[in-house]
Design a protein around this nucleic acid. Structure first.
Lengths: 229, 229
DNA sequence: GCAAAAGTGTTTTGTCTACACCCATGA
DNA sequence: TCATGGGTGTAGACAAAACACTTTTGC
């Protein structure tokens, strides 16, 4: 590939940083790693890496997340490109932030240890390197506006889940309580839930019925959008 | 600034491309330029340029838009970073797309001529270079979702405007007709409009009252968001 | 039998939609 | 006087919000 027309221009280092949200049934958490290289080695950070000459930003994000979690097919979206001149004291580096949603039980424990990774409740997120706290904040705002119009359960919940779990997820995202009667009425009216003849007895004596998503209707709503809250 | 820690990584050319929307009172238009350098000289394109080593992406967008329009203080937001490997046949170039809203009467005619710039109605946008049609489409979707929850009139309308003009703007953004009774009721209930004792007689014999935005309430809604449509 | 969570309906309130006529004016 | 666009009100449909009791079952 020729760059003959552009040779007089500056080129820059471009990184990808991933904000990974997970849900453990009651709290929304973010995956952080203890940075193992300079500058700022030892501080908490988002998982990131540099984009290679021959890969797209999306591909870089997939590569980096796979390295951290061992997972493929992660739900992921580009969030924003952070491009202040001095955002990284190690040099002029742009960072394209991606945000990802994963089922907290799917990731590889092994890789977690390898990367010194840890799940943090959103309230307890520590001070991060560079502008990573800003990225985290932007990602939280994004998931909130996203969840208001699009179903986000598939990515964050196990395949079988209960209505109370789904409600917990929404309550965690918005950090507020909802009325269970209104919540279940709303969700059931969307025709994206299929009730199973099986109960989860883990969190109550009576037990709560499991549901799965109706993939077809779910994907349609994911694409078209709906009013959730 | 040192890049000692990162010297083994690839660096890339990073451009900024600006989708500029303007409103002429009845139609929503986009500002395009005839490209005056290779590759693809002579084709229609978004206004763009490369980010310098010592400027942020936001600053680059401001610089590039000022060069095109002569305007400062343009309403502008980052849209998305387009980073496919082969998006630009001239080399590996990332592009950060910005979208901007301007009052179509404010821009400098002089600079328009200098840059071979032209306003195109959204329906008539021609084939553009690279992935610029994709950027345009993303920008249109963005302004639509933005306008649904945030007032966008300040940037696109003159300081004094009439209710029919404001309605025309929304109709242009959504490419659909609205009921004027419902529209005025909704807008007036938001407390962001101040009625002036003065009429615009340009488009009717009776004349339509001018309004200005109540800056304080407007900015609050711009920030917090509201339900517009 | 009691504690703990699941499940279920109704009423009220507010918001969105649809719809039609009169007004002011310049030509 | 008439053609043109500006301005205004009401009724019905629908969606959101508030609210409390019964069910199941493990202990």
């Amino acid at each position: 590939m020729s760059i003959v027309h552009y040779e007089k221009y500056d080129s820059l280092l471009v990184a990808v940083d991933c904000i990974v949200f997970g849900f453990d049934g009651s709290e929304l958490k973010a995956l952080l790693i203890k940075r193992d290289f300079e500058p700022q080695i030892g501080k908490w950070s988002l998982m990131g890496g540099f984009i290679h000459q021959d890969e797209s930003a999306d591909d870089a994000a997939v590569r980096i997340l796979n390295r951290l979690t061992g997972l493929d097919n992660i739900y992921m979206e580009q969030l924003h490109c952070f491009a202040d001149v001095n955002r990284d004291p190690g040099g002029r580096v742009l960072s394209i932030a991606y945000f990802a949603l994963i089922n907290i039980n799917d990731y590889s424990q092994q890789l977690m240890f390898t990367h010194n990774a840890q799940w943090y409740s959103l309230k307890d997120v520590p001070e991060l390197i560079f502008d990573h706290n800003t990225m985290m904040k932007a990602a939280l705002e994004h998931i909130r506006s996203k969840a208001a119009n699009h179903p986000v359960g598939f990515a964050l919940l196990p395949a079988k889940f209960t209505l109370p779990q789904l409600q917990n997820l929404y309550e965690a995202i918005y950090d507020s309580k909802m009325d269970k009667r209104n919540f279940s009425r709303k969700l059931l009216s969307l025709n994206i839930l299929i009730k199973l003849n099986e109960k989860d007895k883990a969190s109550s004596k009576k037990g709560a019925f499991y549901y799965i998503f109706d993939e077809e209707n779910y994907k349609r709503l994911e694409h078209e959008g709906i009013k959730f809250i």
